[in-house]
């Protein structure tokens, strides 16, 4: 059983009750089949109600679920011949980011992505998926190679943010992020970015400038964590739920704000309920993206990227001559 989240407790409770009755029917002479059928109908309805009406804070919980599949899970299911490469050639290797080459449906690609840990020990090695400058510079080194050898870049975004540490600042966290943004802006190969968990601020964006940006249904993408926003706005981090709503961080919000291209559906209850099914959903969107982008020549690709980003943001231009 996967770890249950607060909002799905009623589903879990009902499901275990059904299991209990089933066991009872099997182990004794009492026939409870009709009760079980009734409860199963109710469960189906309850699941639809709960999972069909997730609020932003519920989605934050799913996006942060400890069993949520990571970059390496998807790499294994979607690509062949993946080889991971290490190091930024300047300071060290940062395991909060994985990077390497592989084949996607027989064609060479470069893959970069944030990497969370699977358990506490793993998370310490991976620094909870929060990169230092060397992580971004490693990814950049590989993306530059992709550009040189004309391979599409596929990026998986999954981080709470760039690591806020002393050493990270000393080694130029700002510059590392800024450099990635500007370099990704200019690569002459297709870049497809997929937010698979949390898209936390600049640390997420540093792998996130691309031609197509997709989000898994329950993932989030935000300028600041809901807790951080609540602390700043209301001096109360427990109002994170409220902040999650105001900040508009769900895939549906980002689609509406014209920031992302596609929402990739998730299995009922979240990606962790069926990783293979989730990978197949990603596969469909990714292959469509690459097929579309492959048709553009380099000039068209850059022009389209510029048009995409130029239109981001909403403002009002007042006519000074009116009045």
């Amino acid at each position: 059983m996967k770890q249950a989240l607060d909002f799905e407790k009623p589903v879990i409770d009902l499901r275990s009750k059904i299991d209990e009755l089933k066991k009872l029917t099997k182990d004794s002479d009492i026939d409870l089949t009709s009760e079980i059928t009734t409860l199963e109908t109710r469960l189906e309805k309850l699941e639809k109600d709960i999972y069909g009406n997730l609020n932003p804070w519920d989605r934050v919980q799913i996006a942060r679920h400890s069993d949520r599949p990571t970059t390496l899970d998807y790499i294994e299911l979607l690509f062949t011949d993946f080889i991971e490469f290490y190091g930024d050639r300047l300071f060290g290797d940062d395991e909060a980011i994985v990077s390497g080459i592989a084949k996607y449906k027989g064609n060479p690609v470069t893959i970069v992505g944030h990497q969370r840990g699977k358990n506490t020990k793993d998370n310490i090695t991976r620094n909870f998926g929060m990169p230092h400058p060397e992580g971004y510079r490693k990814a950049l080194r590989h993306m530059k190679q992709a550009n040189k050898f004309n391979r599409p870049i596929i990026s998986f975004i999954d981080t709470k943010g760039a690591y806020p540490g002393k050493a990270a600042e000393e080694r130029g966290q700002s510059e590392a992020i800024a450099r990635n943004l500007i370099e990704m802006a200019g690569f002459k190969v297709p870049i497809v970015c997929i937010v698979i968990g949390e898209g936390g601020s600049g640390g997420a964006l540093a792998l996130g400038v691309g031609d197509h940006i997709h989000m898994l249904e329950n993932s989030t993408y935000s300028v600041i964590s809901p807790e951080g926003a609540a602390a700043l706005l209301w001096k109360d981090s427990t109002k994170a739920k409220q902040a999650a709503e105001s900040l508009k961080i769900s895939s549906y919000d980002l689609k509406q704000l014209n920031v992302i291209d596609e929402i990739i559906p998730e299995p009922r209850g979240g990606a962790h309920r069926d990783v293979k099914l989730q990978a197949s959903y990603i596969d469909q969107v990714l292959s469509d993206s690459l097929a579309t982008l492959k048709q553009l020549n380099q000039e068209e690709l850059l022009e389209q990227r510029w048009e995409k980003y130029k239109s981001m943001g909403e403002y009002i231009e007042i006519d000074a001559n009116e009045e």
């Binding site: 800024a178 943004l181 500007i182 990704m184 802006a185 601020s201 600049g202 964006l205 996130g208 400038v209 993408y221 935000s222 300028v223 600041i224 926003a229 700043l232 706005l233 900040l247 508009k248 961080i249 919000d253 980002l254 704000l257 920031v259 990227r305 510029w306 980003y309 130029k310 981001m312 943001g313 909403e314």
Partner: peptide, 16 residues
């Protein structure tokens, strides 16, 4: 903060 992810995207927009 008050313009959420659109503010974040200004970082990429200016970078392009």
């Amino acid at each position: 903060m008050q313009e959420g992810v659109l503010s974040l995207m200004q970082m990429s927009k200016t970078s392009v």
